[in-house]
Design a protein around this nucleic acid. Sequence first.
DNA 1: TAGATTGTTAATCGATTAACAATC
DNA 2: TAGATTGTTAATCGATTAACAATC
Lengths: 213, 213
Amino acid sequence: MKTKLSYAPSIRRLPSYLHIIRAFQRTGDPYISGTWIANELNLEPIQVRKDLAITGIAGKPKKGYPVEQLIAAIEHYLAWDVEQRAAIVGAGNLGSALIGYQEFRNHGLHIVAAFDNDLSKVGRSIHQVQVYGMEELKAVIEKMNITLAILTVPSPYAQSSCDAIVAAGIRAIWNFTNVKLKVPEDVLVQREDLSSGYAILSVMMRMRSKEVS
Amino acid sequence: MKTKLSYAPSIRRLPSYLHIIRAFQRTGDPYISGTWIANELNLEPIQVRKDLAITGIAGKPKKGYPVEQLIAAIEHYLAWDVEQRAAIVGAGNLGSALIGYQEFRNHGLHIVAAFDNDLSKVGRSIHQVQVYGMEELKAVIEKMNITLAILTVPSPYAQSSCDAIVAAGIRAIWNFTNVKLKVPEDVLVQREDLSSGYAILSVMMRMRSKEVS
DNA sequence: TAGATTGTTAATCGATTAACAATC
DNA sequence: TAGATTGTTAATCGATTAACAATC
């Protein structure tokens, strides 16, 4: 599927706002200002206000945004207020790391199963999550009501694993491989690309070293 | 440091171009067209040409770009043609996954040491990379000529580990925690934020389910 | 040659930033 | 009240896309 998502840059910033606001919530103060959030994240206050506006939250001049409602509004906008059941496909180092990543619980993301074709892993548990064989994909996904697959296999297996995932009825894939997956029209793919983050860092480092010379 | 990087979106796309071009290189064809790359990645040809232009490469009308030179130009622009020596700080699941991620070798990124404060890990090796105690940070970094730290500790330890990294003389940090690090002016930080990728996916899924109803 | 492709210049689009009135 | 902060409207900025001449 080729959805052109509006406000993508704003949506990408919302999770860091949420993180800050949740920390602020512990202070007990019922209002938080956009200015305060902006300072905390080195952003412009106007950008924070614009971003928060897309969630539909209404603030109060002079006071700021009501903390409880703001958290609820962001979570609702991100659909993080509903449980999302996901499976890890590829229970290697990265897959295991994601299963153990506690932060996802705060996003409504529950990894409830893992799949691998390594028989020495099948039947075992990783962070209390059961590992199944790839041939059980369809049955387990249906039984456990899984609607999202997180793809963490080595790249040579990426496309074939993807095909199996799609055949099992999954319509959304979070792709951690560097392979551009070929999927039917109605399947959503979000690629998480470590290399592009490193590209930015690498160019920044190169520019800094030039600056000095 | 607060560098405003020009062409950031283009830079983020360069690694996927490089990946495609390297695969194409195996066909033996000495020229590759921007149109072909665009098709492969579901992009517009004009965008590919504009992106490649920032590397300084010159193509030939009708034929395309010379494959060897194009690869060299992208790698040079990204500074991936020089060896970058890095250390993992936090040798947990994610740290181990990154140490084992072979793709980084293609980017000139060599992870040559790991650090952890878990004594049961210190002295052992992960994928042939030695794990040191946090107290050895400064000594090892100097001895091994390490100039980049990859931060993969649990978030409660993020800021203190960061402080130790900076104290050890490192001036660039690739931050995989969800903590906004406080660093001196001259330290580069690139944050790799899994949550923001998931936010995009989550909103796309919500919108699709609305569409149908 | 003819036609595919590059690369430049201009137009469009969307995101960020600025200005400022409204208001608690 | 005074002043900090919101939210709207407009301006700016940068990225993407379009048009098209140049060319191998």
